[in-house]
Every structure is written in C-alpha cells, then in structure tokens.
C-alpha cells in the first residue's frame, strides 16, 4: 500500500459518502444518473468476485464490502425508495448504457491477463469503470443547475483514478514485475473523460459561480 493508492481509496470512499449524504440529506437524487450507479454496482460485483476466496487484508475486504453495499444501496434508493425515486430525472437519463456493458464485455473477451472467468470479469470491470461515468456526465450537461454535492461527487470520483495512476507509476518504479497495462490504459481513458468536467469545475470554483457544463 502506498500513499497514492491510499489517497485514491479515500477519495473514492469520500465520493460515495458525498453521494449518500446528498441523497439522504436532500431526500433527492435529482441530477444523479441511475445508469451510472447501476454500472458502478456491476463494476464492483464483477471486480470483487474474489471477496470470499482471496483474503488480502482486512482493509481490502472492508473496502470491497463498503463499495458493493453502498453502490447497491444507491441503486435501490433511486429505484425503490418511495420519496427518492420520484426525484429521479428519468427522462433526462437516457444514455444507452447497455452499449457500454456490451463493449466492455467484448473488450474483456479480447484483452485480458488470463482467459479465466475471474480474469475476464476483472478486465470487464476495469473497462466498464472507465466509461461508467458517461451517463452521469451527459446528465450533468442536460440538467441546468448542478447542485454542489453532485458536482463534488463527480469531482472526487474523477480524482480517485488520477491518484491510482500515480500509484501505478510508483509501483512500476518500486516493484520489479509490476506492469499492468489493462488498468493503465483504462485509467488514463477514465481520467481523460473527466478532463472537461475538471476544467468547468475549476472555472466555477475560480469565478465562484454555479457549475454549468456547456451542452
């Protein structure tokens, strides 16, 4: 464990806590894409298949449980909670996220470390996570005013993978055999997708105005 990875995990955890706070405090999920949340739940479920087989550390197991349970809880809230579900922008959240699932699956079947169920699912989860934010970014462009908590949620979600890239650079230079090109490329794509969001987030912060993504 190195400081970049720990910072990445904490930033990721913080983004989930901000989203839970927003939904719990405002009893609203307006501006949040259910499709992105469903994709994240699928990412965690396919990536953490080893939860019950490989024990790496208490930290690793606890964090996996937190990510799986929080993503499922958010999806449940947005689909079934009597109050929250009515605030979901159903007609705005129209990204065809099944294409992202299909594309990631094809990529995982073509490019993986080893052709085993676990490794193909792992690669699938890495590719899917790289594009899972797209429905959310499209929804942000459509919804006029982005509330602060939603903006902070997306910001921390983007920042966490940037920390992971620093972690991979660090591990590449400190551990002999460490060179995983799959998360490398997917992580760069993932962080790249946030580039314009980060730019407009920075402008809104600098000019102290509401975050507004150009359509």
């Amino acid at each position: 464990m190195n400081v970049f990875r720990f910072a990445g995990d904490m930033t990721h955890l913080f983004s989930v806590l901000v989203l839970l706070l927003k939904i719990y405090a405002t009893k609203s999920c307006s501006g949040i894409s259910l499709k992105t949340q469903e994709l994240y739940a699928l990412v965690f479920l396919t990536r953490y298949l080893d939860l019950l087989t490989d024990f790496i550390s208490l930290y690793n197991t606890v964090m996996k449980l937190v990510f799986i349970s929080s993503s499922l809880a958010i999806v449940w809230c947005m689909r079934a909670h009597p109050v929250v579900r009515r605030t979901y922008d159903k007609d705005q959240d129209t990204f065809r996220h099944y294409t992202l699932v299909a594309g990631s699956l094809v990529l995982a079947l073509l490019f993986h470390d080893r052709f085993t169920i676990r490794e193909v699912c792992w690669a699938f989860s890495i590719y899917l996570e790289a594009v899972a934010i797209l429905p959310q970014l499209v929804l942000l462009q459509r919804s006029r005013n982005v509330d602060n908590l939603t903006g902070q949620y997306v910001f921390f979600l983007g920042a966490y993978r940037a920390f992971y890239i620093l972690n991979w650079i660090y591990r590449y230079f400190t551990e002999q055999h460490f060179s995983r090109w799959i998360p490398w490329i997917a992580g760069l794509v993932q962080t790249g997708l946030y580039a314009d969001f980060f730019y407009y987030y920075y402008l809104s912060w600098k000019n102290n105005v509401k975050l507004q993504l150009p359509a």
Binding site: R5, D9, H12, R47, D50, D54, I56, N60, M63, K64, F67, D113, R114, W122, Y164, N167, H177, R180, P183
Partner: peptide
C-alpha cells in the same frame, strides 16, 4: 502473460 499475483488493489 501477467504473473499470478492476485489483484491487491480496489
């Protein structure tokens, strides 16, 4: 192919 180490990252 990659060595057999488990995925120790989240």
């Amino acid at each position: 192919t990659q060595p057999e180490e488990p995925h120790d990252e989240l």
